Simulated assay, not measured.
Amino acid sequence: MIVINTIEELQIELNAHRRDGKRIGFVPTMGNLHQGHLSLVDVAKKHADIVVVSLFVNPTQFGPNEDFDSYPRTLNEDCKKLEGQGTNIVFAPAKEEVYPKWPNITSVTVAELDKNHCGASRPVFFGGITTVVTKLFNMVRPDCAIFGEKDFQQITIIRRMVTDLNFDIDIIGAPIVREANGLAMSSRNGYLSQQEKDHASNLYQTLLWAKSEIEHGRQDFRQLEKEANQKLDDLDFTPDYFNITNQDTLELAQADDKKLVILLGCYMGKVRLIDNIQL
């Protein structure tokens, strides 16, 4: 495994692999890796000959009162994990490499899909993600890119962006990786004590309850959402949203929709957690 910090060096290395007919797979991350991230590398290895993982804490997706400055940066530990997982290239650029003129005045947005759910309470979030992912796609020029399905709204937005902007990149979703108690793995879980992690497993249990209600015939989705939010409130979470939506449009689901995803966002103290479950 090699670690590369500049776009020029990255493209020299990848162009050599392309000349050899190798397929390039890409896993963009912000570092502070856990088993969920490493599972993305395993998926990439199934679809590509060369796996590139980026480690970059992207400033444009954080709001003014969010945790950009305190977000964990664990480069050495991340590289050890990635080498053990069989990664070929780690791309760890500085901010000046990704954003050569700061502040960045060009942005990429995916209208409609980014306005609700996480986008409603974090208005700069998805614009920051789609902008940096576009930049990283231009740097890496991968054949395929792997994103975790825990961020279901994110992967839906990325897929639409790739289609709309004619990127010749296959977007591959990887299933959510969970702790033994059901809590979806997240870098922000590192802010929680073990007792808090155990309590946070109630998020997944609430999703399972709502899924079961729908599978048993309930179609009053707005009432079901209210009941789920009340459950979260009773468990001392601060709900942001609990939305039963159409998988393709991310609009609130109607009774005749067949492909559903339940999206959940909430706070446990100051820690923001998200999860989802597909039907």
Results as ranks from 00 to 15, higher is better:
N5Q: 11
I7K: 15
E9Y: 03
E13P: 00
L14K: 01
N15T: 08
R18S: 14
K22A: 13
P28H: 00
G31W: 03
L33Y: 08
S39Y: 04
V41P: 02
D42N: 15
A48M: 09
V53C: 10
Q61F: 05
P64Y: 09
N65P: 00
N65M: 10
E66F: 10
E66R: 05
F68W: 00
D69P: 08
S70W: 00
P72L: 01
L75R: 03
C79K: 13
C79R: 06
K81T: 06
K81R: 14
L82E: 08
F91S: 14
K95I: 15
W102V: 07
S107L: 12
V108D: 02
T109F: 02
A111R: 05
L113E: 04
G119E: 07
P123W: 02
P123Q: 13
G127N: 12
G127T: 04
T130Y: 12
T131H: 10
K135M: 06
F137R: 03
P142T: 07
E149A: 04
F152V: 10
F152G: 15
F152D: 12
R159M: 04
R160N: 15
D168Q: 03
Y191K: 13
H199Y: 11
A200L: 00
S201D: 06
N202V: 01
L208Y: 01
K211D: 02
Q219H: 08
D220E: 13
D220T: 10
D220P: 07
E227F: 07
K231L: 11
N243R: 15
D257A: 10
K259R: 15
L264C: 04
M268N: 04
R272M: 04
D275N: 05
Q278S: 15
